[in-house]
Amino acid sequence: MAMTVDLPALEQTAAPRAAPARWSRYARPALGLLVPVVCALGWELVVGLGYSNGRLVPPPSKVFQTIVELARSGELARHILATLWRVGAGFALGVIAGTIMGAISGYWDFAKRLLDPTVQALRAIPSLAWVPLFVLWLGIFETSKVALIAVGVFFPIYLGVMGAILSVDRKIVEVGRVFRLSGPAMIRRILLPAVLPAYVVALRVGLGLGWMFVVAAELIGASEGLGYLLLDGQQLGKPAQILAAIVIFAILGKLTDWLIEVAAAPLLRWQDAFGARGGR
C-alpha cells in the first residue's frame, strides 16, 4: 500500500530532474564549442566586411574551400593515406616493442634492473634528436619516418605496461594463487584484465605522440602526407592550405583516439568510470 501512495510523489520529483539532465547532455559539449565558433564567425565577419584582407589568416570559409578543392583533385586522399600509413606502421611497431619490453620489465624483476635504466636514459633524449641519425641509417624515405614515429610511441607504451603490471594488486594475485592458477592462467585470468585499463590509456597517449611525430617526420622531408601540405603551404605562401592540414590533423587525431576508446569500451564496462555518467 505504501508503495502505491509513494509512486506518484516519486514520479513528480523524477520528471523535472530528467529534463535538466537531458538538456545538459547536449548543452555541456555545446558550451565547449561556443568560444571557437564565435571566434570563427567573428573572423569570417571581419574579413567579409572588409576590415581585414584575410591573406595571412584566412577566414573559415576559405579554409573549407581549400579542403574541398584538395578533396576534389584527389590530392587530399593521397596525403591522408600517406600520413595514415606512416602513423599506423610506426604506431604498430612502437606498440609491439613497447608492450613486449614493458611486460618483460614489469613481470621479471631482473629484466627491469637490467633494461630499465637504459630505456629511461634513452627516453631522456628528445626524440627529434634521432632524426639525423635515422636519416643516415635508414635513408630519407619511409623507413626513417616510421622508425621515428615508432620511437615516439614506444616510450609511453613501455612505461604504461610496466607500471600497470607493477601496480597490480597483490591481494588479487593471491586470489589466483589460492585457486592454484598456473602461470599462463594467472596471466590470462588475473594480470591481463587487471592491466587493461592502464594499457588503453597508454595506447591513447602513444597514439597522440604518434601523430605528433608524424608531423615532425614529414616536415623533415616528404613528397606527400599532411606534413608535406604544411610545408608546401609555408613555402608557397598558402596559409589556407596550412590551416586545412591542421584541421585534418585534428580530425584524424580525434577520430583515431575515439576508435581506441570505442574498441576498448566493452572490455572496460566493469570500471566505475568517472566519465561514464557525464563526469560532474
Binding site: 591481494k171 588479487i172 593471491e174 586470489v175 589460492v178 587487471a194
Partner: peptide, 20 residues
C-alpha cells in the same frame, strides 16, 4: 606447502575480481 584444492580461504576484504 602450497595452496591445496581442499583448502579454501576467505580474507578480511572480499577480494572479488572487479572485471568479473
Amino acid at each position: 606447502t602450497s595452496p591445496h584444492a581442499k583448502i579454501g580461504i576467505i580474507f578480511q576484504e572480499p577480494r572479488l575480481l572487479p572485471w568479473l
